[in-house]
Amino acid sequence: MIQLYPASKRYTVKNDWLESNLSFSFGEYYDPSNIRFGPLRVFNDDTVQPGRGFGIHPHREAEIVSIVLKGQLKHEDNLGNAGIIGTGSIQRISAGTGVLHSEFNASKQEEVQFLQLWFSPDEKKLTPSYEDISYDLEQMHNQLLPVISHTGSERVAKIHQDLTLYLSRLDGKETLTFRQEEGRRIYVFTIEGEISINNDNILKSRDAARITDLPEITIQASQDSFFLLIDLPGGEF
């Protein structure tokens, strides 16, 4: 089954420094029918104005992934980690038993756009940890490039959940096929452009699809497109 979630149906939080489009219940937005998709429980599409950001705040029992789409994101935490990530970088935080961190736009001139995803970990009370990796932008051209996985490797961040997150830039009219084991889930999010899943399920910019009971899908771009795909476990969460 393929369920489409248009960008226009997301809940939007907006003030003088932040615009956040929420795909799942988060903060002031609560919908009991839209809490999670398997272990994926937060998918926020954030734009932060120059020099602004989220001050020091706590997290626990979550795997937090940030993907910068434009600009630079500055991170600091109580584990002693500090740095700036930009386009072509992925940040993973395992909050585990508890972590304090802040996130700010590192630029005083341009906004930063990033996606932040939270996943339930595969075990509780993990020791908090941090990782950031850079990936080869050319390697996702017309193919699915893994950037996060349960095993991790060079240029692939390790996450404490049975999932793999892929990025791809697909030329117009090009096609990809994705296969996974029976009983798993697929989440697709179009960052830019327009793609179709199995011919007749159209995803325009910032649209999403939640897919179950389909271990194989075909993705075709109607124009040059940038999207992510997450191979997620099945079962109850």
Rank of each mutant, 00 (worst) to 15 (best):
L165Q: 09
Y166G: 03
Y166D: 08
L167W: 01
L167P: 03
L167A: 01
L167N: 00
S168A: 10
S168Q: 04
S168T: 12
R169S: 12
G172A: 06
G172S: 09
K173Q: 10
K173T: 13
T175N: 06
T175L: 08
L176N: 11
L176D: 06
T177Q: 12
T177V: 12
T177N: 09
F178S: 05
F178R: 15
R179L: 15
Q180R: 02
Q180N: 13
Q180G: 14
E181H: 05
E181R: 03
G183S: 12
R184T: 15
R185H: 11
R185S: 15
R185F: 10
Y187A: 14
Y187I: 05
V188W: 07
V188R: 13
F189G: 08
F189W: 11
F189S: 14
T190L: 09
I191F: 13
I191N: 08
E192W: 03
G193S: 04
G193E: 01
G193M: 01
G193I: 02
G193A: 00
G193Q: 02
G193L: 02
I195W: 02
S196G: 11
I197D: 12
I197S: 12
N198A: 08
N201D: 11
N201V: 07
I202G: 11
L203D: 12
L203H: 03
K204P: 03
S205K: 14
R206D: 00
R206V: 00
D207C: 01
D207R: 06
D207N: 10
D207L: 05
D207P: 00
A208H: 03
A208L: 06
A209M: 01
A209Y: 00
R210L: 15
R210H: 13
I211W: 02
T212Y: 01
T212K: 04
T212P: 00
D213R: 00
D213E: 15
L214F: 08
L214M: 14
P215V: 04
I217W: 05
I219G: 04
I219H: 02
Q220W: 02
Q220R: 12
A221T: 03
S222Q: 10
S222E: 06
S222V: 04
S222P: 08
Q223H: 04
S225D: 09
F227A: 01
L228M: 14
L228S: 07
L228R: 00
L228T: 08
L229N: 03
L229T: 01
L229Q: 02
L229C: 06
I230G: 01
I230Q: 03
D231Q: 07
L232A: 07
L232R: 04
L232W: 11
G234H: 08
G234Y: 06
G234R: 04
G235P: 07
